[in-house]
Structure formats: C-alpha cells, structure tokens
Design a protein around this nucleic acid. Structure first.
Length: 398
RNA sequence: GGGGGGAUGUCCGAGUGGUUAAAGGAGACGGGCUGUAAACCCGUUGGCUCUGCCUACACAGGUUCGAAUCCUGUUCCCCCCA
C-alpha cells in the first residue's frame, strides 16, 4: 500500500498518460515520506449536470487516489462556466446564467458522490469563483503567461483555425483560468480526459510562473459512447447517465458495439468473466449487470436482465409500463394518440402505423386503420416499435 | 478602415428564376435477420383534419405570373490587405 512504485503502477494501469514520466511515483514517494496526502485536482464544468459513464472514468480514478489515502479537490467551475471550455469542441459553447450553474453544480456534486468517498479528509469541494473573481491588474499579470503560438498549437484550436471556424479570445483565456485553479488549490496532481491534456499541462506553466511546484498530470482515455464512434457526451446523445433506471442502463449497454466491451470494462472498473474476444454476448450481459449493480443498486443487474429477457427473448410485454389516460372522445385518431403517449409527431405516428410498427396487446395493428373506437382501447397495451409501451385507460365517466 | 466570400432540412452538403418539401451522404425511425452487437435487405425521415392543405432554404422588404435562386436593407461568420 505504501509502496510508491506499486501505487503508481496501479494508478497508471489504465491511464492514457502520466506526465512528466516518473513524476507520479516520485510524488507518491515524497508524500509518503512527508506523511502528507497528495492533493488531486479535478475541475468540472457545471454546464451539463448529469454525470454519465464518461465522467465515471475520471471519477473512478479519483476514487482510487482516495482509497490510497489521498485527498481529492473537486473544483466546481462556476466562474469558468461563464467562459466556456472549448476542449474537444468544434464550436463556441453557450454561456450559462448564475442560477443554472448553481443548480447544475449541486446535481453534479450529488451524483459524483456515488463514485467518490465523501469523508471529510478525503474530499474538498471548491468553487473557482472564490479566486478567479480577481482585479484587472492581477488578470493582466496572468495574461503574460500564455503565448499565442502555444495556444494555437493546441489540437482543437489548430483545427478550428485551419477550418475557418471561429475561436473567441474568451476561449483562449480558458486554459489560463484553469491553470490558475491549480495555483489556488495547490494541486499535486490533476486529472482529466485526454482531451484535457493541453489545459492540464498548461496548469504547470501557470504554477511555474507563480513560483509554485508544478503538478503531475494524469490523463484517462476517453470513453467511447454508445454509438461506438464518438466520445461519450450528453450533447451527442450517446451517453448513459448513472442515475438512469436499471432497465435503461442494461438495455443501452446491450446495444453498444462489441468492440467497446473491453474498453468499458477496463475504464469503468467492471470485471468480466472469460477472456476478451470470447462470448461477446455473455460478457456484454455481465458488463450491463455490473453497471446496473453499481449505479442502480446491488441486485439491480439481475433484475434488469430478467426484465430484458422477458421483453426481447420472450417478446413479452414488460410489467412496469407507464399508463396513458385517454380523452373523452368516442373515436380515437391513432396518430394523435401515439403523439400524446410517446412524444412523437402525428406524422411520425402515422408513418409507424403504415409501416407496421404499432401493436395493440402485442398484436400487429393493421397498417391501413388510423381510427378506432375508444371501447376497443380500454386497458390495452399500445406499443410503438420494439421498446415503447403505454397502457391505455379510459377514465370512468364522472 | 478597404476588398472578397459565405449563411440551405437533425448534421454534412448539392442546387443560381418554374417539373424543389428541395439531389447525395450521415444520423435517426419502422420492418426483416439477430445477440436490442456487427454486417446485410426493405421502407420512411417538416407539419397537418393527408389522393389535399400549410409552413420552410439567416432576418425584413421588393421585382416577377412564379424566387432557396434576382434586387435592397439588417444580423452573424470566414478570408485577404491595412
């Protein structure tokens, strides 16, 4: 446990990079000798409050530091959220209002604690508004540090610049502010995804300029989203949130491409039976169960899997489905009903019917029938496609 | 400050007066096959009270029998020169 070499190897086993080389082990050794905790920083941007599996990769790594006795410093970027982090973005980010930031930060914190240890000596939560709300003179002093050429080398800036896409000065300033966070909290180590590499390394420059020891940078590979192509991100809609119901986590995990099974298992810390490449279906089911147990609660994995099998193997109707109340009309226009029940447009509903995608109580609905008497619908299960269900009820006359 | 270029549907991207709800691709959705994977096949993809109607090609106005396409103004973006 106290062997720095073992600890460093453990911490970097699934990391993308630890920079500079060997620095992590050295720090761990120094900390052990001085009998103090390392301060491990993670800055989070409170623009997207819901924590998803992509965030878990880094949170999980923080947790490992905590379990080795170190202290995590979580920085809520309430001030920097007004700037907008350009990392990995091809366009300028929207700016949030103060209330949105507060709300998001709270939600995030709450959810992050499902992964992190919140013991008082293991977790410190700060907001960078504490120190970034500085005067112009202080800011201008900081502004000497970054060089334009250096900023332009950064991958996403370079791409945008070459592609004729806009980059605002505000975005240029972002790394500087994030770097100053490291000065303010005296971080020993900063974590982030590989897309954060530039910002994290730049933090070292700021620390050096301020006469502080430079932090070690540990980057984690980006978790590929459920589409199997792009990094997991809420705005791309390829994410799985850790507060989602077990059925959802299970089902969406089952839809990931096979190539993702091992990276996910590795980065999210879910152990799988068998060897990589073998029995992808079985391993994927184990992965899905593991994620459910971890985020929805112990035992949820088996439960979700059973529900999943009922639905897709037996093609049965799930037992826990939302109830949709019908209005008072005698005749129901099916496209309108589908629109109300499932949040699609009436045209989409109509299309689904004419393409044979609608079922009533599991029986395919005739493709040319768009209207039906309300008496035919009381208590039945309306189904759109393979996985959208609603139980219909006709309210008793008052 | 001067000059040039651009803004099209979820995204990318054709289209420079009529046969354009707008080629093509991606994505998505429905069906088939299946392991709710991949690959593959078929269909759909602005809305609606649907053999028709309405709204759409940055925004506002104009020319025309007719405009995404022409003109004027506005907003935003990019490039070059200073």
């Amino acid at each position: 446990m106290a062997d720095p070499r073992t600890d460093a190897a453990f911490l970097t086993r699934n990391a993308a990079a630890a920079q500079p080389a060997g620095a992590l082990e050295e720090r761990l050794g120094q900390a052990a000798k001085d009998g103090r905790q390392l301060r491990v920083k993670l800055g989070i941007d409170p623009t997207a409050p819901d924590v998803h599996l992509g965030h878990v990769v880094v949170l999980q790594k923080l947790r490992e530091f905590q379990d080795l006795g170190h202290r995590v410093v979580l920085i809520i970027g309430d001030y920097t959220a007004r700037v907008g982090d350009p990392s990995g973005r091809s366009a300028t980010r929207p700016v949030l209002t103060g209330e949105e930031i507060d709300r998001n930060a709270l939600t995030y914190q709450e959810q992050a604690l499902r992964v992190l240890d919140d013991a008082p000596d293991r977790l410190e939560v700060r907001r960078n508004g504490e120190w970034l709300d500085m005067g112009m003179d202080a800011f201008l002093t900081l502004a000497r540090i970054p060089k334009v050429a250096q900023l332009l080398e950064r991958d996403d800036f370079a791409k945008r610049y070459a592609g004729g896409k806009p980059i605002s000065l505000l975005e240029f300033v972002y790394p500087l502010l994030q770097g100053y966070d490291s000065v303010a909290v005296e971080s020993d180590v900063e974590l982030g995804g590989t897309d954060q590499t530039f910002n994290l390394l730049f933090g070292r420059d700021v620390q050096r300029a301020e006469g502080r020891p430079e932090q070690t940078v540990l980057t984690m590979p980006l978790l590929v989203g459920t589409d199997g192509v792009q990094k997991m991100s809420k705005s791309l809609g390829n994410h799985i949130g850790i507060t989602e119901p077990a059925e959802e986590i299970f089902g969406r995990t089952m839809r990931i491409p096979d190539e993702l099974i091992d990276p996910w298992s590795d980065l999210l810390g879910v152990d799988l039976p068998g060897t990589p490449g073998d029995d992808p279906r079985g391993r994927k089911r184990a992965l899905a169960r593991g994620l459910c147990d971890r985020f929805a609660g112990e035992g949820e994995g088996d439960r979700a899997q059973a529900a999943f099998d009922r639905l897709f193997k037996d093609r049965a109707i799930p037992d826990d489905i939302p109830v949709h109340e019908l209005g008072g009309e005698d005749d129901v226009h099916l496209p309108a009903l589908l629109a109300d029940a499932f949040g699609v447009s009436r045209s989409e509903g109509r299309r689904a019917i004419t393409q044979g995608g609608v079922r009533i109580d599991g029986e395919p609905w005739p493709q040319d029938v768009l209207d039906v008497g309300v008496d035919r619908l009381d208590g039945v299960v309306l189904q759109l496609g393979k996985r959208r269900f609603a139980r219909l009820v006709v309210p008793a006359p008052a």
